[in-house]
């Protein structure tokens, strides 16, 4: 639809690279230029991208090494094996800005790639008000720092939370409880892992309540 848009951006910023997949146009820009590029797209009369749809991020750590999918429990552990095999990929993170122009009915994705040892992106809250929460969300889930954001705090999770859950190396079921769990001596919690699980009343589990760290069982 709008290969022209990529040309437009590349005409102004020669270090941007463009690609296209199934009709989605993407420009990848260096991190330092992201505010410039998005500001240009917002204000240029040929682009007029006034609507910031979404900021998304991807952690490509296990993109190639992940074994297979499947509905079984084993597949939940699959990323863990993949992690052991191939620990690092650089640049590991991608931040994608999905932009749209209501007047011109065209969309474009601006992508920035980040190395995991330097996860800083300049903020675009000066261009779009809505970027405020999106950036907080990405910070919350991936730990990407947005330089210059007025209020970069966790959005969905709580301040006590350690780590960033949508990173591929965060275990799916690693909970960080805020309230200690009750200890019912004879509560049976059905099959599954965890205290009181597997049909054995909690008082009879050989693990014993005291030895279980509520943050680590799953």
């Amino acid at each position: 639809m709008s290969q022209a848009l990529i040309e437009l951006v590349r005409g102004k910023f020669p270090d941007a690279t463009g690609s296209s997949h199934r009709g989605d146009e993407v420009v990848t820009v260096p991190r330092e230029r992201v505010v410039e590029v998005i500001g240009f797209l917002r204000n240029d009369p040929a682009a007029e991208m006034k609507l910031l749809r979404q900021i998304a991020a991807v952690d490509v750590l296990t993109f190639r090494s992940e074994t297979t999918g499947g509905g079984s429990i084993a597949s939940i552990e699959a990323p863990a094996y993949a992690l052991q095999k191939k620990p690092s990929v650089e640049p590991r993170y991608q931040v994608a800005y999905n932009l749209y122009s209501i007047t011109r009915r065209q969309s474009l994705r601006v992508r920035v790639e980040l190395r995991s040892d330097d996860m800083k992106v300049p903020t675009i809250t000066g261009l779009f008000r809505t970027a405020d929460w999106w950036e907080r969300y990405i910070y919350d889930m991936f730990g990407v720092h947005f330089d210059g954001h007025p209020n970069l705090q966790r959005l969905m999770l709580y301040p006590e939370f350690v780590g960033y859950p949508l990173r591929k190396d965060y275990p799916v079921r690693k909970r960080q409880l805020l309230v200690p769990e009750l200890d019912f001596p004879d509560l049976v919690r059905g099959p599954g892992p965890g205290p009181g699980g597997a049909g054995v009343p909690m008082s009879q589990t050989h693990v014993g309540r005291a030895n279980v760290d509520p943050n680590t069982y799953d």
Binding site: A56, V58, D59, R64, E66, T67, G70, S75, L166
Partner: peptide, 8 residues
């Protein structure tokens, strides 16, 4: 990523 699960 071409597998049976959504990557992201």
């Amino acid at each position: 990523n071409g597998k049976g699960k959504p990557y992201a």
